[in-house]
Amino acid sequence: MRNHVLRPLFAALALVALILTARQLMVPSDFGVHGDSFTYNFYRADSVNDWKKFPVSYKGREYCAECHEDNTESITKSKHAIIQCENCHGPAMQHPDNPEALTINRSRDLCLRCHLDLPYPGSQRGELPAIDPNDHNPEQECVECHNPHNPNLEDME
């Protein structure tokens, strides 16, 4: 067969070889099926480790108790024991190295997350002590009267 007929075939073969070589170089060696299903378990295995390495921000009450035992103890005796420190004090990730990173939220809005009166049947929300923020000392911050670590009204100072 004449050369000019075969030339496009050689060009095509060279292109295929080029693409396969590029694929070999670009696709990581750990890319493949890692599991039962080709559809769902086809991935780069190291990606799982990337996710495992993601930094943890919320450290939990035990971490806070390592230094602030008095505070963690006082709250565990109150009805607010179910609330984690970091819900109001912010994630402890950079604490104590960078004290400013801890953003304590003392706002009225924070308390209203639970204590705004929403009388909903079929939800535990209706059972929580609640206020109408427009009636209940609207200009004041809650923490001026209520101690968030001990919200018991009888102990209120």
């Binding site: 299903s37 086809f42 991935y43 780069r44 990606s47 990337d50 996710w51």
Partner: peptide
């Protein structure tokens, strides 16, 4: 979501969590 991913960047781990490969 994993089924439609054209590049294999979405996947299900062996313990059943669906993740996205941010590099891929």
């Amino acid at each position: 979501c994993v089924q439609v991913c054209p590049v294999g960047a979405s996947y299900q781990t062996q313990d059943g969590v669906v993740l996205v490969d941010r590099k891929w």
